[in-house]
Design a protein around this nucleic acid. Structure first.
Length: 589
RNA sequence: CGGGAUGUAGCGCAGCUUGGUAGCGCACCUCGCUUGGGACGAGGGGGUCGCAGGUUCGAAUCCUGUCAUCCCGACCA
């Protein structure tokens, strides 16, 4: 490709509306252009990168025995009614109506469609197992799209779905995908960690997310907190929404601090745990913290030992909800008649729920840390009052569940070593769905005995566009992008310093033609620009290699530069060609 | 959904307080000059100042509404 013809516009400055480096660089280097909030044009350079990521994914999926197909982007409401998700998926699902008034939606994921496909196409156990995948655009009307391609509303995804006749079969399919995923990300130049995670709206029991770890605290691109164990024989790693830990022993009996009697005490202006603990001269470990949530429009009171904090996803799962938010202070006062900091679980069943909420009683869920507490302190549902010396016998027994957010330094649940936390970008995920969709949608086959059985399903996603953006997050410097060779839009940039110099231009042309015939993806920067302009653009765009043909050609030498390492070699033109081919060979088919 | 900020040429911004012919840098076009890290000179093209109302002789500027974009929050009671 001649640079003078390449449709790209690099910018001298970073865009003002971008926050993370991948967004800034991809816009500035002319890869993407925003069309609407969270919706981008993939310009020619970007599209080449995306196709390369796609092809790596495609090759590894095919090698793992999966078959590619393509499902519609627009889906009918009725399928989502069948699975039950039309009413629970929420606003992220972009809904529309066709001219006949029929409900449709833009595909945020394809469990419903693939289950319908399998229902029609798989009749016998002899056809199993099967794994089908596609690569296409998805649309999710995110609450808050941001960070460019890392969290867009429209994005490119590979989604695969496996169908098995047994749990063992599913586990094999799952393991095969896990293996393929490591290869895929490795080939894309990304080191990933598979972490246990919550399965969220997709459903299912076992799931892992593939995280590109971002150690840099200044970098916001890693949107997930990942807890992990550094013990090499252990390898425990989990998303914060799923992580568990072993806690140190703590003093949890209020009697040790003189609060063995159940009574109401004045605790003026103690709106925080710190203030309350200081006022009563007790540690937070004998205070039971109460937090009010609104989950699927039901009122939920969550309880936890007050030195610990809640993990909202866990709370949501514990009460079987799909959406959760903490109650606003005004809401809370309207319900409990006490201001924030003074609500508690005593006589909670008598609290009347206002009409705008669902449910007749407040759902109470307590963290496992609360179970062993004795003579503890709770809010009295009266401003400036608390109860002390409370025991579980004084309260209705709540549901106990793990709803606690793990903290760094707590002990690994598997080996007892301390846990560490870091940020991560989720580039892929794998789920064991089980029969959630096949049962709901009556997708069945006949087994060896002629009996009807629901498919045992798994689903496996990779964010293609997010993977490309994550690669930029991990591979850049102050001058621009440093693409891993496998996913770079072009392999090499040939820069004749002065296109008016006949010898320079002639040699550059020859190198260009030789590389093209060797199937190397080369760009010839034939623009009548000064060298500085071409160099800046080359670094910004991120070509892995550069061949500069300048004055030294008069002595028979050109310059060969490696973007990643900054190494520069002074070589003869033929050697430069050979060197490039040697570097690129593993990436040419 | 709550809070904050911003909308002026493709990009980055000034002008608004105090209403009076729409500006700067980059990018783009032409000519000259230059050619190893975003040169220089001269000339040029491009904007109904987000949109809609209002006030006024006159609105980018003041007022009202609306839309969009970005950030923070949606968390520790």
């Amino acid at each position: 490709m001649k640079m003078s013809k390449l449709f790209v516009q690099t910018l001298r400055e970073f865009p003002s509306d971008a926050e993370v480096i991948s967004h800034k660089l991809l816009v500035r280097a002319g890869y993407i252009r925003k069309l609407a909030q969270g919706v981008y044009n993939y310009m020619p350079l970007m599209w080449r990168v995306l196709k390369k990521v796609e092809n790596i994914v495609r090759e590894e999926m095919d090698a793992a025995g999966a078959q590619e197909m393509l499902m519609p982007f627009v889906q009918p409401e009725e399928l989502w009614q069948e699975s039950g998700r039309w009413n629970v998926y929420g606003k992220e699902l972009m809904r529309l109506k066709d001219r006949h008034g029929r409900g449709m939606c833009l595909g945020p994921t394809h469990e419903e469609v693939i289950t319908a496909v399998a229902r029609e196409g798989i009749k016998s156990y002899k056809q199993l197992p099967v794994n089908l995948y596609q690569i296409q655009s998805k649309f999710r009307d995110e609450v808050r799209p941001r960070y460019g391609l890392l969290r867009g509303r429209e994005f490119i995804m590979k989604d695969a779905y496996s169908f098995d006749s047994s749990q063992e079969g599913l586990e094999k399919s799952y393991a095969d995908m896990a293996k393929a995923y490591y290869k895929i990300f490795e080939r894309c130049g990304l080191e990933t960690k598979a972490v246990q995670s919550d399965s969220g709206a997709i459903g299912g029991a076992v799931s892992h997310e593939y995280m590109v770890l971002i150690d840099d605290n200044e970098n916001n691109a890693g949107e997930n907190d990942v807890f992990f164990c550094k013990n090499k024989n252990c390898g425990y790693a989990a998303n914060a929404n799923h992580a568990v830990s072993v806690l140190e022993a703590a003093e949890v009996d209020g009697a040790k601090f003189g609060f063995s009697e159940f009574k109401k005490v004045d605790t003026p202006d103690t709106t925080t745990i710190e203030e309350l603990a200081a006022f009563l001269k007790i540690p937070a470990t004998v205070i039971l913290k109460s937090m009010i949530y609104v989950a699927d429009n039901r009122i939920v009171m969550a309880l936890i030992r007050a030195d610990k904090t809640f993990e909202e996803t866990k709370v949501m799962n514990a009460v079987g909800a799909n959406e959760i938010r903490s109650a606003a202070p005004a809401e809370l006062e309207a319900i409990f008649g006490a201001s924030k900091g003074f609500v508690g679980p005593k006589d909670i069943e008598q609290v009347k729920i206002p009409e705008e909420y669902e449910g007749e009683k407040i759902t109470v869920v307590a963290d496992l840390t609360a179970q062993e507490m004795k003579n503890f302190v709770i809010g009295a549902n009266e401003t400036d009052k608390h109860f002390t010396g409370v025991n579980w016998s004084d309260l209705n027994t709540p549901v106990f569940a793990d709803i606690r957010l793990v903290e760094a330094g707590e002990k690994c649940p598997d080996c007892g070593e301390p846990l560490f936390v870091t940020k991560g970008i989720e580039v892929g995920n794998i789920f064991q769905l089980g029969t959630k969709y096949s049962k709901a949608m009556n997708a069945v086959y006949l087994d060896e005995n002629g009996k009807t059985q629901p498919f045992i399903m798994g689903c496996y996603g990779i964010g293609i566009s997010r993977t490309a953006a994550a690669a930029v997050e991990r591979h850049h410097d102050e001058w621009g992008i440093k693409w891993p060779v496998a996913i770079a839009p072009y392999h090499v940039d040939i820069v004749p310093v002065n296109i008016q110099d006949e010898l320079q231009m002639k040699v550059a042309d020859e190198i260009y033609e030789k590389l093209l015939s060797a199937k190397v993806e080369a760009v010839l920067d034939d623009r009548d620009e000064r060298a500085g302009v071409k160099f800046k653009d080359a670094d910004l765009i991120g070509f892995p290699f550069r061949i500069t043909v300048g004055k030294t050609i008069n002595e028979g030498f050109v310059e060969f530069k490696v973007r990643e390492t900054g190494e520069v070699f002074k070589v003869k033109p033929e050697e430069a060609v050979e060197k490039i081919i040697e570097y690129i060979k593993p990436y040419i088919k």
